[in-house]
Design a protein around this nucleic acid. Structure first.
Lengths: 110, 110
DNA sequence: TAACTTAGTTACATTAAGTAACTGAAATAA
DNA sequence: TTATTTCAGTTACTTAATGTAACTAAGTTA
């Protein structure tokens, strides 16, 4: 029946990017290293709990690195690795598609 | 705090593609029109319930079209619209990234 | 009349995500 | 000295999304 199984690496990549918030976090980190609270603030509706989970997953995948600066109070910065920055073309293509095919949202009245 | 809000169209696109199974369904339909059960069989672990939900969402977005052939028994085929086929470069970039950055999985012993 | 096919839907169980309050360490502030 | 603040999360609990398996409905064939 299923005579044409998918490439397992492609499958894994899609699964990662399909997790809620993953792409947004990577997108934010394209601007440079950020602290936990900065990422949290830049993505309204993303809770600290899920951000914590995602950062751990992305670190385990080698997409994000966690850098500790033992200042006081301690500073911890998250940044993209080369592997993480290599996701850029994917996000660019999503940007192109969205500007070509999605409608411009209406302005909201207050 | 959040001085740089994201483009709402980009945001919507990422949200769509971040829904579990969406990208896989689009990927399968790139091979041509498919029936409900064919899609279900091509994606092990995708349940009929979620497939039904996703196809409705994708139809509502104008990415997939549902074509009814009143044969007997009835044949219903799902296919990509132009808007749906325009997602191809995104999936291609995911493919490129995965083959460059993800490890080749080990063969399994039985 | 009973069983089969296609295209789903429904009820229920499990997992993931959201919310708000809390922890712990170090450094001020009163 | 005790209290307060900052940073970086974690915990307990609620709600939403998914998964599972059985079921529905219409027409067809045996």
């Amino acid at each position: 029946m299923d005579s044409n199984p998918m490439c397992p690496r492609f499958e894994r990549a899609v699964e990662m990017l399909s997790k809620r918030w993953t792409s947004f976090i990577v997108f934010q980190l394209l601007n440079g290293p950020m602290r936990f609270v900065q990422i949290e603030q830049s993505l309204p509706n993303l809770s600290g709990k899920v951000l914590s989970d995602r950062l751990k997953e992305l670190e385990a995948e080698g997409i994000v690195s966690r850098n500790v600066y033992p200042e006081t109070p301690v500073r911890i910065e998250y940044s993209l690795t080369d592997k993480g920055r290599a996701l850029t073309p994917i996000l660019q293509e999503i940007g192109k598609w969205s500007s070509e095919w999605l409608p411009v949202p209406e302005a909201q009245q207050s």
